[in-house]
Amino acid sequence: MGGTTSSTGRGGGTSLGDLPENCVAEVMLRLDPTEICGMARLSRTFRGAASGDGVWEAKLPRNYARLLAAAAAGDDSEEAAALELEAIPKKEVYARLCRRNRLDGGTKEFWLDKVGGGICMAIYSRALSITGIDDRRYWNFITNDESRFHSVAYLSQIWWFEVRGEVEFFFPEGTYSLFFRLHLGRPFKRLGRRVYSADHIHGWDVKPVRFQLSTSDGQHAQSKCYLTDPGVWINHHVGDFVVKNSNEPLNVQFAMVQIDCTHTKGGLCVDSVVIKPQYLAQKMAARTSSV
């Protein structure tokens, strides 16, 4: 009479810990990684299931081995050698890819979105081809703690504005959105408060900036907008591209130009180019205006 005897021999109803670990693992396959980590705290059985390779391999991109190799290639520490071992637990692979993995001398980095498992990338302004960047009358790199890379390219004034770049990478399958991260005005701190200088801002309301994107498999996108709203960082949406084969590297080229030489323009910070899965891009404060 009374409650069912638990597996420990004590009276009372069954508990979550009485569930078979393989059943718990099946449930975890339907959860996102943050939910899996939360459930691992419930009991020893849940913790064991949450550490299983089968659970985490299902959350990794199909080409995770290539991504891990890219992370190792960009890591000059002793840890890089350990990344080549096939025996590394898939949970550790997931955690490693969620870190900022730098490429090309630290001018690019990629990481795995902890929630959705999609690959994101940031390309520093120093990795871009910027017209006039070597002439300090026009451009300077200035320190900025709001940048992932701790400095940004700042334009004082120029007639011919052109910024181009490219990246070749083994992107996992999916749809991606590409943005330029820009700021009108020069941000800085005064008495501990964030302010910005509008001294050089001019010319962006005369003609729109044109954004372009193309891929090695023939995809094209473009947009254009006037640059407005000084004092805030804005992610200007260039366009989207689709990756169908994660085992082939995709070359993505992108640009922003305003080459109408009838007027000068200036007062612009160029931080980086950001590539994110479309599901994440829809959550970003993307800003673009059709004209």
Rank of each mutant, 00 (worst) to 15 (best):
C23D: 09
K108V: 12
V195C: 06
G118K: 06
G12F: 05
F161M: 01
R194A: 10
S197M: 01
L280F: 06
L280R: 06
T107A: 13
E35F: 04
V291N: 11
L83Q: 10
G11I: 14
W204Y: 06
I133K: 13
A65M: 09
S214G: 01
M28W: 08
P277N: 04
S177R: 08
M284Y: 10
K90D: 08
I259D: 10
F179K: 00
G74I: 00
G203S: 03
P208Q: 02
S15N: 02
L155T: 11
C98E: 14
K189Q: 09
G13T: 07
R287F: 14
G48F: 00
P172L: 11
G74A: 00
G11A: 13
M1E: 03
W160C: 06
T107P: 06
A72V: 05
L184C: 04
M256S: 04
V238A: 02
G165E: 06
T131K: 08
R66T: 08
G12S: 04
G54E: 03
F179N: 00
A80K: 07
L191T: 01
E35Q: 12
F141A: 11
G117A: 05
I201R: 11
G231L: 13
A198R: 11
Q157T: 14
P187N: 07
T143R: 14
L227I: 07
L97F: 07
G52A: 11
A25L: 02
W233D: 01
W233M: 02
S7Y: 08
F241V: 00
V55N: 07
N63G: 05
Y64R: 03
E168Y: 01
N247T: 11
N247D: 11
K283F: 13
N245H: 12
L31N: 05
G116I: 04
P187A: 12
R181V: 09
A285R: 11
V195P: 05
A95W: 10
D113I: 01
A286P: 10
D75P: 02
L128K: 02
V243K: 01
R99N: 12
P33N: 10
S272M: 14
W111I: 05
A82L: 15
G239Y: 00
R287V: 15
G105P: 06
S77T: 15
D32H: 15
I88A: 14
R287A: 10
F211R: 02
G11R: 15
H202E: 14
R190C: 04
C120D: 06
P208V: 01
Y94N: 04
R148W: 07
Q219Y: 00
V195K: 03
P230W: 13
W204C: 08
R10K: 14
T228F: 02
F241I: 00
G132K: 02
Q157R: 13
N235M: 01
G192H: 02
A127W: 11
N245R: 09
R47Q: 03
S177I: 05
Q278E: 06
H236R: 03
P33I: 12
V270L: 12
E162N: 05
E78Y: 15
D104W: 03
R62Y: 13
V242W: 00
T107R: 15
S6E: 05
S272G: 08
Q157M: 14
V242Y: 00
V238M: 00
L42M: 01
R102K: 08
S156F: 13
D32K: 15
S151M: 14
V270C: 14
F241E: 00
M39I: 00
F170G: 07
H202W: 09
